[in-house]
Design a protein around this nucleic acid. Sequence first.
RNA 1: GGUGCUGUAGCCAAGUGGUAAGGCAGAGGUCUGCAAAACCUCUAUGCGCCAGUUCAAAUCUGGCCAGCACCU
Length: 321
Amino acid sequence: MADKAELLVICGPTATGKTALSVALAQRLNGEIVCADSMQIYRGLSVGTAKVTPAEMQGVSHHLVDFLPPETRFSVAEYAELAKKCIADITARGKLPIVVGGTGLYLQSIVKGIDFSQQETNFSLRNQLQERLSKEGVKPLWDELRAADPACAAAIHPNNRVRVLRALELYLQTGKTKAQQLSESLPAERPYRDVLVGLDCAAREALYSRIDARVEEMLARGLLAEARLVFDNRARYVTAAQAIGYKELFPYFEGAAPLASCVAALKQASRNYAKRQLTWFRHMEGMHWFLSGAEDTEDAVVKLFIETCGERKAHGKTLSY
RNA sequence: GGUGCUGUAGCCAAGUGGUAAGGCAGAGGUCUGCAAAACCUCUAUGCGCCAGUUCAAAUCUGGCCAGCACCU
């Protein structure tokens, strides 16, 4: 416990300036960046996912960005494993790992140190359940789950097909209740001496107008061409095709809706997403909130980091504020 | 000036005498293997305004106001 590695985490809803802040902090704290974003992992999907550009990186190393072909299936389990190795590696080189992203599930897996290694995905079982789901509906599956693991079923709304399916799948595969699974995968304490930084705007309206503006910016940077590519490959880009920024434009490519209304839908979807992200981050234990875009945010984060982890030479130079 | 139509939440909208559907937006939330996904909860003491009829009016009657359309 005494020598837990330090970890700086930067999160917040879309369009709050995570990228710029994280690069600045990496330069100041001698850090490297580990991306925690479920869509920026994919190669080629750059404009729509607001991926860091090479110019924005300013020489700072970035990991787990732009490294997977868009047709690859991916999951938190794989992410957690990769991120863990990546963080360990950065730490071993005497640098500070800075995890940056907006995917709550991914962030949580790192911060809590969840161990997903127990079992492989059983695709045949999943497909089998999927078939039952489409034939019988959710209810029978939910009832089955309730009979097997009442506590787990109680926590999942019967309408939530995705979660009911997964919970039942996991039970049938392992024969263990959710509680048992949780206790086996969740360490007693957090693995890192983490400093959690959340970015948000002072007012929700301000956040929303920033998001709208950024969508326009994406359009100007060639979002349409990128979306077209995703549209043309939508059958193969299983996960990537559900990214916000592309699927909203599909009706336009299909000739079913004018571009303007698709853009409006895209902005709307982004705003809704930002709200969901906020819900997640607000409830992460130990979160420190800072104002998006404020000039003193960078200094304030450095100060917080030093206060939490101490002024030391750990990252190649004496940190001072 | 006349005639007609319309007026229900921020937006769309159902409701023709029995105590305000639904959708979107908005707010809050759930979260351990597709998560930028999936799902849940909440949100009109009030139907343009005023008066009247009635046990009961968003619904019927009259007047007024506003918008739209057409006519002169």
